[in-house]
Nucleic acid binder design. Structure first.
Length: 202
DNA sequence: AGCACGATGCTCT
DNA sequence: GAGCATCGTGCTT
């Protein structure tokens, strides 16, 4: 089931938490690539000095001001594309950064794209799934753009670690340390065909 | 295992 | 022209 727009039209922290365990899907040359989302970060509004929208509405940030459920994809450090999903009502700029996935489908195709490296890191997620400039603004609630998010497995609260967002080197407090990063931890996954089972790690 | 740093190009002032 | 929501390498412990 593709997550509907109502899923994203909620408080960003709720969306960031509930995106853990969902399935990010990419249809590329007829091949399905997919991975469970294992790490997210929330960026919420113009007041959040870690959020790109702190500078207001610009050509770059305008997607964040649009309707929820669309992709906000941008370029950093001269090398990397990063994927976010827009949240909350139209007109309020907020998004969730997808920082890590656990590959489930199209594993070989993704491994080839990323040179055999892992998919922990927002730049590597986009590299593995061939997400870039063309996907900025794409509607993630339909399959038309070849990128969407489906319901996945439920991650229990005991398997979620919350902490400060990464890489906000020069952002002032409290935004630098506010615990808006969500990670799946303390579990392993087992593939059963194209489905996945969660296993606690002792 | 952890830290430092350079690459690289887009975005906004 | 400065500043990045990063990554990989190469060095130190």
């Amino acid at each position: 089931m593709i997550l509907p727009r109502e899923f994203y039209d909620r408080p960003t922290l709720t969306v960031a938490r509930e995106l853990l365990g969902t399935r990010l899907v990419r249809l590329l040359d007829g091949v399905r690539l997919a991975g469970l989302i294992l790490e997210t970060e929330a960026y919420i509004g113009e007041q959040d000095l870690g959020c790109h929208a702190r500078a207001g509405r610009t050509p770059r940030t305008q997607v964040m001001y649009g309707p929820p459920g669309h992709a906000y994809v941008y370029f950093v450090y001269g090398n990397h594309w990063l994927l976010n999903v827009v949240t909350e009502r139209q007109g309020f700029p907020a998004a969730v950064l997808i920082r890590a996935i656990w590959p489930v489908e199209g594993i070989e195709a993704m491994a080839a794209r990323r040179g055999g490296r892992d998919t922990f890191g927002p730049g590597k997620v986009c590299r593995a799934m061939a997400i870039g400039r063309a996907e900025n603004g794409a509607d993630l609630t339909s399959s038309h753009a070849g990128v969407w998010i489906e319901a996945g497995i439920t991650i229990p609260d005991w398997a979620v670690t919350v902490g400060p967002r990464v890489g906000l080197y020069s952002v002032p407090e409290p935004w630098k340390s506010i615990p808006w990063r969500f990670r799946v931890s303390g579990v392993e996954f087992q593939r059963l065909g194209d489905t996945v089972r969660l296993i606690p790690v002792s």
